[in-house]
């Protein structure tokens, strides 16, 4: 019997956090698939990582700065070109309140 890592309620909550609506059928399918995948991920529990530092990325770079100098940015028309909804010089957002 496979362990259930994620319940329907949890999947709904995470999908809400990620701002992705799920259909009823897809929710059922995803729960199954997620539990399969998380079951596989369980194998990392075996590894002893006591006192091991995490690798966020592989380079030894730290704090890459640039000069605080203004440079030209995209003209408004260019920046708006791909916006699905716009009005005058603005992006049109959905209702907030």
């Amino acid at each position: 019997m496979k362990r259930r890592h994620l319940s329907k309620k949890e999947v709904e909550h995470i999908a809400w956090l990620a701002h992705i609506e799920l259909s009823k059928e897809e929710k059922e399918l995803f729960i199954e698939q997620f539990n399969d995948i998380l079951d596989y991920f369980k194998k990392i529990d075996k590894v002893d990582t006591e006192e091991v530092q995490p690798t966020y990325h592989v380079l030894d770079l730290m704090n890459v700065y640039r000069e605080d100098k203004a440079s030209p940015s995209l003209p408004i028309e260019e920046a708006l070109k791909n916006a699905p909804k716009k009005e005058k010089k603005f992006l049109k957002a959905p209702r907030i309140v």
Partner: peptide, 25 residues
């Protein structure tokens, strides 16, 4: 989020959270 670029549903009546979630769905 379908705001600056990308897929956007045509629903002006819905609130932002619904619109974003449907765009992404």
């Amino acid at each position: 989020d379908g705001l600056r670029y990308g897929y956007r549903i045509d629903r002006d009546d819905a609130d932002w959270s619904t619109v974003y979630s449907k765009n992404r769905q």
